[in-house]
Deep mutational scan, measured.
Amino acid sequence: DTFTFTLDGIEVRLHGASEELIKTIEELLKRDIRWEELEKWIREWEK
């Protein structure tokens, strides 16, 4: 599955994202998160 969203005018596609990761990103997007914050968060998630 591919999860697609737009952040700061950039279309982002995550391939093979888990349901948990998708739900977490959706929550972060509701908080009007900035790209830099999401990028940092995703790097931490990957560890």
Rank of each mutant, 00 (worst) to 15 (best):
E36H: 13
W41Q: 06
L14G: 01
E44V: 07
R31K: 13
R31T: 15
K23A: 13
W35M: 08
R31G: 13
K23Q: 13
F3N: 00
L28P: 00
I42A: 03
F3L: 03
L28Q: 04
L29G: 01
L29A: 02
R31C: 06
W41N: 04
F5D: 00
E11L: 06
W45C: 08
I42H: 01
T2R: 04
T6S: 06
F5K: 01
E39H: 15
R34E: 05
K23L: 11
L14R: 00
E37V: 09
L14F: 06
E46A: 13
G9H: 02
K23G: 08
A17I: 11
E44I: 08
H15M: 10
T2D: 13
L28G: 05
W45Y: 12
I10V: 14
W41A: 09
E27L: 13
I10H: 13
E46N: 14
A17G: 04
L38G: 01
D32H: 10
L29V: 07
H15S: 12
K47D: 10
E46S: 10
K40M: 12
R13S: 15
E20H: 10
E26W: 11
L21P: 00
K40S: 10
E11F: 05
L14K: 00
L29C: 02
T4L: 06
G16M: 07
R13F: 13
E19V: 15
D32L: 07
G9D: 06
T4E: 06
L38M: 14
W35Y: 13
K23D: 06
E11C: 09
T6N: 08
K23S: 10
F5E: 00
L29P: 00
F3A: 01
E37S: 07
T6H: 07
F5R: 01
T2E: 10
G9N: 04
T2P: 12
R31S: 14
T4F: 07
T24I: 12
E11R: 02
E44N: 09
E39N: 09
L14M: 10
L21I: 12
S18R: 04
D8K: 01
L7Q: 02
R13M: 14
E37C: 05
D1K: 13
L7P: 00
A17H: 03
W41C: 05
E39D: 08
K23P: 01
T4M: 09
L38E: 00
W41G: 02
V12L: 06
I33L: 07
E36L: 11
D1T: 11
T4W: 07
E36Y: 12
V12A: 02
E27H: 08
I22L: 05
H15R: 07
G16C: 08
I10Q: 09
I22K: 08
I33V: 11
K40A: 12
K47P: 11
T2L: 09
S18N: 10
R13V: 15
I25A: 01
I42P: 00
